[in-house]
Design a binder for these strands. Sequence first.
RNA 1: GCGAGCGUGGCGGAAUGGUAGACGCGCCAGACUUAAAAUCUGUUGUCCGUAUGGGCGUGGGGGUUCAAGUCCCCCCGCUCGCACCA
Length: 845
Amino acid sequence: MSRYNAKETEPKWQEAWNTAESFRAVPDDREKYYVLEMFPYPSGRIHMGHVRNYTMGDVVARYKSAAGFNVLHPMGWDAFGMPAENAAMEKGVHPGDWTYQNIADMRAQLKPMGLSIDWTREFATCDPEYYGQQQALFIDMMGKDLVYRKNAVVNWDPVDMTVLANEQVENGRGWRSGALVERKELTQWFFKISAFSDDLLDSLDNMDSWPEKVRTMQKNWIGKSTGLQFEFKTNGAPSGFEGLEVYTTRPDTLFGAAFAAISADHPLAKQLEENNPEIAAFNAECRQLGTTEEAMETAEKKGFDTGITVTHPFNDAWELPVYIANFVLMGFGTGAVFGCPAHDQRDLDFARKYDLVVTPVVCPADQDPDTFSIGKKAFTETGNLINSRFLDGLSIEDAKTEVIKRIEGKGAGAAKTQYRLRDWGVSRQRYWGCPIPVVHCEKCGVVPEKKENLPIELPKDVAFDKPGNPLDRHETWRNCACPSCGGDALRETDTMDTFADSSWYYARFTAPKAETPTDAKEVDYWMNVDQYIGGVEHAILHLLYARFFARAMHATGHLPKRATEPFNALFTQGMVCHATYQDPDGKWVNPDDTRAIEGGGFETLDGRPITVGKSIKMSKSKKNVVDPDDIIDQYGADTARWFVMSDSPPERDVEWTASGAEAAWKHLQRVWRLCVEVQEMGEGDTAQDAALEKARHRAIDEVTKGIEGFAFNKSVAALYQYTNTVSKSDASKAAKLVAMQSMAQMMQPMTPHLAEEVWAAMGGEGLVTGAPWPQVDESKLVDDTVILPIQVNGKRRAEIEVAISATKDQIEKMALETPAVTRILDGAAPKKIIVVPGRIVNVVV
RNA sequence: GCGAGCGUGGCGGAAUGGUAGACGCGCCAGACUUAAAAUCUGUUGUCCGUAUGGGCGUGGGGGUUCAAGUCCCCCCGCUCGCACCA
């Protein structure tokens, strides 16, 4: 009997799909379905994470296509970024050559996977045709005030020599380089993401098909808070600081105020340090702090009494001391607060240290206002106001309203909504990115390029022998004509953050060759992305930026209103993990350089024992990497695809094991053997046909539900079971042919090559790719009889087989006649009998 | 500290409040074989029992219910995200 030979079979069917243009997406009158996996960075090699990600998308795409949808399933490359420049510096290759070579390499690794991708739509973000349109978008966004330029303190990464967005700083370090980020003042380009703060926040509530986790993370990131901003009158402050603006979300606690505090970066603090070395030293200490997690956890609340005081807004005789405090951040609110120790833990810690008065102003319902006092824990829950003059007795909410009303009445301040979300700084002082399409003219100022001059292409002839941005040094590129007056001008040399590139590629896929960023007709047909799939690591950065861009593209007329939320459903898949291996010297060992020892365990190829560590995400540094190329070469793409869909639920991490891959391969072989057996069998007996037909419908039902519910592991389990059933069935050849045709159809999304081979062998017409999804006959899912478990007091004691049509009374009678039940009852009457038809019987004694 | 999620055999994991452990891996036994591989068949939560059978079992403790892995309360542990956000 011939073995299934994936190596020969897989390219054959890929060629057939190619010839048939099976995956070419063209608008027609069918309902469309747009499946997108987060496109890869062209590092040069695909890894198992890609295999899992793209297989999931492919299963959905192939299934939806079979289910009758017009499917769009494109692929491209997120191709700008630092690694290309690093390669240029290290190896002397041009970033463009390096990138396009990597793309070619990765495409060559991806294609053997047999993904149902419309490759005619492929593009890389570093193609001038793409980034030229991005420049057009930028110019349109300038026209709508969604881009602006300002002098700002920015996060400067001294290793990558570029600016980073807030989102790209993790624990005070650059997200790529890991270098400690410095603060630097530069003139920068910003996208006005804050213009949509509320919309970005509010619409999260309606995005039911996004993981709760991601929505929560975005909510926290946007960080909306409502409160009161008002001005204290100062006493003894330098001129120009007669007032001190503070922001609070708890205006109700104003009568519990014990002090005011400002950030070390507050203008007043900076002013004071000019003439006071002590303050200067304290401020310097504060600025150093707060970069790492541990530092913040352990950092003591510290303050410096400036000697200045502020007057309480509701009592001219009440003065509060003004401290510079290390826990007040310049980046939030006004960089100044009033401290209410009784109802804020930080303020309480601070007050205890500096021996400030702690007056409770909110009293819980179960406490006596006269004796209620605060110990080591601030009281942050609800209650009613005390010790607060005109607020006494009010609820927190009513007190807030009242304070805001009175402050507004005095003209001292107003209710205000604050966001944690900042505008997106997009200037990068790098070469390998999309050039910002503006020109600096002495006469006309900052002028956008004319659209007919787009794309502003990156110059090819650049050198990376010196640090910094080569565009700055490229005289002929820099010097240009002003688009407005035609005079001598200089080109902007900043390029855009590469996150901009990935913020609209999903829209570009709908018309990748259009002369404008999008084509109205195409974008109207294909948008939105119905199912987006990618890693949860993009929960904030990429997904928030993409949501912003969609809104900006709507504002500039490039996307319909409905596409402002571009991803209807988001699925975040787990990582691919592998056990880690260490040799006796503690060095990491690649799984390929080990072999299994009889009786368990592993050793190195030269016989030294291996310590097996826990399973973690595949990474080069831990050497626990399995190369998809090797797996495809050894077992074929279907095995790799089948394995990553088995066992683990898609949202969870999956552990790659050699035995698991082996098992996947064995199963595919078994399906093929079964197929050959059916081919070679005689006509057979039709007595068992009905049973097989039932099993077939049950399998269709389960596999379909598994795919629809993103539980591919359950679909796989159902297919295992179905294979067993078909294999053991004594049905006729005709019935088995039908059974195996359905097998091919159901396996097609996961293992398309084998499915084609089985389909062809079983006499299927044309390609199974594109064949309609098998339909479930609901009537075949129910049996004539059903096995009912009989419980006594909730414990299973027996089971009976009853007709599906049996009445409750009949079932009750049968249950009571069961030997196990009569034995336990011992002549007594049951207290109660619960019959759940088709499910269970419970006898209560 | 805040938020989210998770905790089920040796392992990955199933289970609309209704027979816990589907399916796979592994282990064990058997068939085929000179032998091995491959393949096929069967067993496999745990304890008592030759067995019919019974006890105990979903991190721990309470509760709701005829019935709880599932719902509610408290606790423990792990993972992820955010974090001095006023």
